[in-house]
Nucleic acid binder design. Structure first.
Length: 877
RNA sequence: GGACGUUUAGCUCAGCUGGUAGAGCAUUUGCUUGACGUGCAAAGGGUCAGCGGUUCGAGUCCGUUAACGUCCACCA
């Protein structure tokens, strides 16, 4: 690696090379080590259909920060990556691709289709993992898994069988959410609701006895062919006498009963509801209570079937039009009222979901939800931020049984066999069942359905570690530590992992869930394909570098909150990377002699003690923040330290010694610089792995890679609080002088003598050189007092600095300025005094706070005194 | 209908256990400062959405109102 660094940091020349270096050297991989503590994260597996988007970038940046931090802290870390087969999403894509060739699933048959799907997986499955590498993700690719690989499939069968045997998985004919486009059932969680403008159609259903009619209102007239009753509230006086009578269903001319059911809200609509058990979940329940027939009028594509009379063959919305027309023509349509209501859509294709009755498999949730609620309640699992616990409880406590069967081919096929002779249902882990275990018939076939994609991802934290086998990894790395994911996936995934882990492992799958929000566009809109406002992280990496992207996503972000991505932020991050780069260049260009490894010199200058104290604090705070998952705060502190403290102050201060004649002092300064750079790079490494590695390698170092170096720890020996405070006096003086010179528009090139009147003579004598370097002083004279009537005076709490620049001084203005400053100081002092004079404050506030205020008061009084003296000297001139 | 979040400088956002408000960008001024103009030095800009309460002390805790947003429920 060259010691000649370019003026501008070029991520492209670094990132790919370093990633390869890490991966090829196996730095991401660790074997279970009983002498160390494990720290495990399982990556939320991205879909194989997916391309890296900002959500992935954020999610994986956070995980990588945590895992790199813990790795450097000495934990035996495992970040386990993998991909999800994403049954419905993937199948839809493949079907769409096939459609372009004019081929259907049925043309290929199940085996042919699966062959194609696996080929598709081979082609695209690696795309996203390649992209994750570009981000710098230090996950253990040797342990990469796939939800449909052999091990995960084994786990799926094991869990299915166990739950079935415990009676927690059952088959039943129920009303479920059906997507007529994907032609499969979906779970409740997979339905998204959106408000749509529609109508309330008021219909007239005549009584069969000819004594009148009932008016009812519906939003779905097209389902009327499936009506098997009309319901009213039992206490509704209007209809009390009609209950038990029958109605003639218009258009169909079928007799249906009027039933009484408390489900009906008398105040809503007309207080009478048509009951269509086959196509409305509530009606289904009513139907069960009243033993009503279930008439399914739709086929799997939501086209009206033979039960729909003359509308047979019509698509449902087409049928709606036709039915309304006919009702109108028949005099059954009384009113059409505009009405907004929520319509459920398939979360994958956004087709309106059709409630549909069919045989499906379900997981009985109540027994599983109970311990899952308990695990969070008793803090076995901590959710960050805490408020999402409420979301979680709310869902878990009101959970309904989980429909897990899907009428898809791409996925885990149900391990269920039906005997066509004796009707026996066999659930087994065996892959091939040729003979019915009950009757011996060979007339046996496997269930055609596959499992909900989330069924296998629910097992991810243990299936990926080898379960159901008792592997070393499983024993060592389970339960995992931290799960990092978006809040949008709590129901789909987090909650299901929790109950699955508890049920199958007897232990929660992780102890902390770190939630993050959604990355939105610069206007706060959700990034979406249809809006075309998505920002491609790979393009951002290309423009600004992976470190800059990571830094942008980690900074100014707090758990659970959404964030906006703006190019300006990435630019600022890139500038920060460049700043670090140039700081390193500075250190390197001064490093002419061979320093073996970073170390601190025997003698430390005052400024060294100051910065080491600051550095030491940063070590403590950043570590603390990271341990508390306050990643945004941690990175902000590093930013401030590196830019403001290390670069803007310390590097400038170090130039005094580096450019001086004292060889020993020079060497000391270099040593401190190297020490600081090297250790600060370590602290920053989890956030910006590439640039830190590149520079760290170039500096004197021990070990092969910064990612395996020791995380800095707080060192009491580096705490020079008193010296640091002393040095701050000098800094205050320098700032004050700069400030005044800027106010007076004096160019830095115009040097001027500075006289410092202070009771800290030693301190300011030491600091004299820094005034020359940083405050354009031509020479510095320090004493207890000076009588320089023609000079500009600058007052801090610790000193008055005089600059004889007579020709520049407008004395009137100077006195006015000082008077104003005095007034401001007095105002602040008054505030402090008000507190100190408040008996309640002095007696009730903690001592350090009170002392602090006393000290502040003294300083302010001192400053006022110094200002007074300055004013007096001006006036006496 | 229920729950939650947001409301802090012109813009985007931090602010961890309550102790006299911060950053980045933008704006204004000055700077060929031997690491960096993707930079340096400095300045202006906020009654922390409103109201009430707890407290010696509230951006921070409690209550309430408003605007915006999200999730859940689904009265056909």
């Amino acid at each position: 690696m060259s010691k000649q660094l370019d003026k501008i940091y070029d991520p492209k020349s670094v990132e790919e090379r370093l990633y390869q270096f890490w991966e090829e050297n196996g730095y991401f991989h660790m074997e279970a080590d009983p002498d160390k503590k494990p720290y495990t994260i399982v990556m939320p597996p991205p879909n194989i259909t997916g391309q890296l988007h900002m959500g992935h970038a954020l999610d994986n940046t956070l995980q990588d920060i945590l895992i790199r931090f813990r790795r450097m802290q000495g934990y035996c870390t495992l970040w386990l990556p993998g991909t999800d087969h994403a049954s419905i999403a993937t199948e839809a894509k493949i079907v769409a691709a096939m459609a372009e060739e004019g081929v259907t699933k049925e043309d290929l048959g199940r085996d042919g289709f699966l062959e194609r799907a696996w080929a598709w997986k081979e082609t695209y499955g690696n795309r996203i993992t390649t992209q994750l590498r570009k981000l710098g993700s230090s996950c253990d690719w040797q342990r990469e898994r796939f939800t449909m690989d052999e091990g995960c499939s084994k786990a799926v069968k094991e869990v299915f069988t166990r739950l079935y045997e415990k009676g927690l998985i059952y088959r039943g004919e129920r009303i479920i959410n059906w997507c007529p486009h994907c032609k499969t059932s979906i779970s409740d969680a997979e339905v998204e609701y959106s408000e749509q403008d529609s109508f309330f159609w008021h219909l007239r259903y005549p009584l069969t006895d000819g004594s009148g009619y009932i008016e009812l209102a519906t939003t779905r007239p097209e389902t009327m062919m499936g009506d098997t009753a009309v319901a009213v509230h039992p206490d509704d006086e209007r209809y009390k006498d009609l209950v038990g009578k029958t109605l003639m269903l218009p258009l169909m001319n079928r007799e249906i009963p009027i039933v009484a059911d408390t489900y009906v809200v008398p105040e809503f609509g007309t207080g009478a509801v048509k009951i269509t058990p086959a196509h409305d979940p509530n009606d289904f329940e009513v139907g069960l209570r009243h033993n009503l027939p279930v008439i399914n009028i739709f086929d799997e594509g939501a086209v009206v079937n033979e039960n729909g009379g003359k509308y047979c063959g019509m698509e449902r919305f087409e049928a709606r039009k036709a039915v309304v027309e006919d009702l109108k023509a028949g005099g059954f349509l009384l009113e059409v009222e505009p009405h907004k209501h929520n319509v459920g859509e398939c979360y994958r294709c956004h087709t309106t979901v059709e409630p549909w009755v069919s045989y499906q498999w379900f997981v009985k949730m109540e027994p599983l939800a109970k311990p899952a609620i308990e695990a969070v309640r008793n803090k076995d699992i901590r959710i960050i931020p805490e408020r999402f616990e409420k979301t979680y409880y709310n869902w878990m406590e009101n959970i309904r049984d989980w429909c897990i069967s899907r009428q898809l081919w791409w996925g885990h096929r149900l391990p269920v066999w039906y005997c066509d002779d004796c009707g026996e249902i066999t659930v087994t882990k065996e892959d091939n069942v040729a003979v019915c275990p009950k009757c011996g018939s060979t007339n046996i076939r496997q269930d055609e359905d596959t499992l909900d994609t989330w069924f296998s991802s629910a097992l991810w934290p243990f299936s990926t570690l080898g379960w159901p086998d008792e592997t070393t990894d499983l024993k060592y790395f389970y339960p995992t530590n931290t799960l990092v994911t978006g809040y949008d996936i709590i129901f789909f995934w987090v909650s299901r992992m929790i109950f699955s882990g508890l049920e199958n492992m007897g232990e929660a799958p992780f102890n902390t869930v770190l939630m993050h929000g959604i990355v939105r566009d610069s206007q706060g809109r959700k990034m979406s394909k249809s809006l075309g406002n998505g920002i491609d992280p790979l393009e951002e990496i290309d423009k600004y570098g992976a470190d800059a992207l990571r830094f942008t996503l980690a900074t100014g972000n707090s758990p659970g909150n959404d964030m906006r991505y703006m190019p300006e932020k990435a630019e600022a991050s890139r500038n920060f990377a460049n700043k670090i780069w140039n700081a390193a260049r500075f250190v390197l260009m001064n490093l002419d002699e061979k320093v073996a490894a970073p170390h601190l010199p025997e003698t430390l200058a005052l400024e060294d003690k100051w910065i080491l104290t600051r550095y030491n604090d940063v070590v403590k705070e950043v570590t603390d923040n990271l341990e508390k998952f306050e990643l945004g705060i941690a990175v902000a502190k590093l930013y401030d330290f590196i830019w403001d403290i290390l670069c803007d102050w310390y590097i400038e201060l170090s130039k005094v010694r580096l450019n001086g004649d004292d060889a020993a002092a020079k060497a000391d300064a270099k040593a401190v610089l190297v020490y600081l750079m090297s250790n600060t790079l370590k602290l920053l490494h989890p956030f910006m792995p590439f640039i830190t590695e590149e520079i760290w390698q170039t500096l004197p170092h021990e070990g092969e890679t910064v990612m395996k170096s020791d995380w800095p720890v707080y060192d009491e020996a580096l705490n020079f609080a008193a010296d640091a405070a002393e040095f701050e006096r000098i800094m205050d003086g320098i700032r004050a002088v700069r400030n005044r010179r800027a106010e007076m528009n004096v160019a830095p090139s115009k040097k001027a003598a500075v006289y410092v009147a202070t009771k800290y003579v030693d301190t300011f004598t030491t600091g004299g050189v820094f005034f020359e370097k940083l405050a354009s002083a031509s020479q510095v004279t320090v004493g207890e007092s000076f009588d320089l009537p023609g000079a500009v005076s600058i007052v801090t709490a610790d000193a008055t600095m005089y600059i004889p620049m007579d020709q520049l001084v407008d004395f009137e203005a100077e006195i006015a300025r000082l008077t104003k400053e005095k007034e401001q100081t007095e105002k602040v002092l008054a505030g402090v005094m008000a507190k100190l004079n408040n008996e309640a404050f002095v007696s009730k506030a903690p001592k350090p706070i009170v002392d602090n205020q006393r000290e502040a008061a003294e300083k302010l009084q001192e400053k006022i005194k110094l200002i007074d003296e300055s004013i007096a000297s001006m006036q006496n001139r």
